[in-house]
Design a protein around this nucleic acid. Sequence first.
DNA 1: CGCCTGACCACGT
DNA 2: CACGTGGCCAGGC
Length: 108
Amino acid sequence: MDEGARQRILAAVRAIPAGTVAGYGEVARRAGLPGRARLAARVLAGNDDPGLPWHRVVRADGSIAFPPGDPWHGEQCQRLRAEGVVVQGGRVRGQRAAASLDEQIWGP
DNA sequence: CGCCTGACCACGT
DNA sequence: CACGTGGCCAGGC
C-alpha cells in the first residue's frame, strides 16, 4: 500500500479530539483519500503505534467494528468510556460518528 | 490476471 | 433501529 497514504491516515486518527469519535470513511476523507474507508481500516489493523488513539475510530453508524466477544471490542469500549464517551450495545451514543472531522475539531 | 476476503458505506425496506 | 443489497478499494493466493 502507499506509505504516504498510511502516514496521512495515522495523522488523521491522531487529530481526533479525545472524548469524540470519527468514522473510518471520515478519517480516510480527512487524509485526502475519499472512498478509502477500507484502507483506513487496514492501516489500523496493521498499526503498531501504542500511542495511536485507534479506539476513537468507529463505523459510520457509530458502532464498534469488532464483534462482541472479541478482545479488542471490550478494549475499545473501555478506552472510550474512560474518555467520557457513552457506549451502549456496542455502539456510541450521544454523538454519532462525526459527519465531518472539521466539525469536531473546529467546533460548531 | 482472476477470485475471494475484509477494524467499510450508502440506501431502501 | 435491524437487515439485506450493491458498490468500492486494496491485499493475498
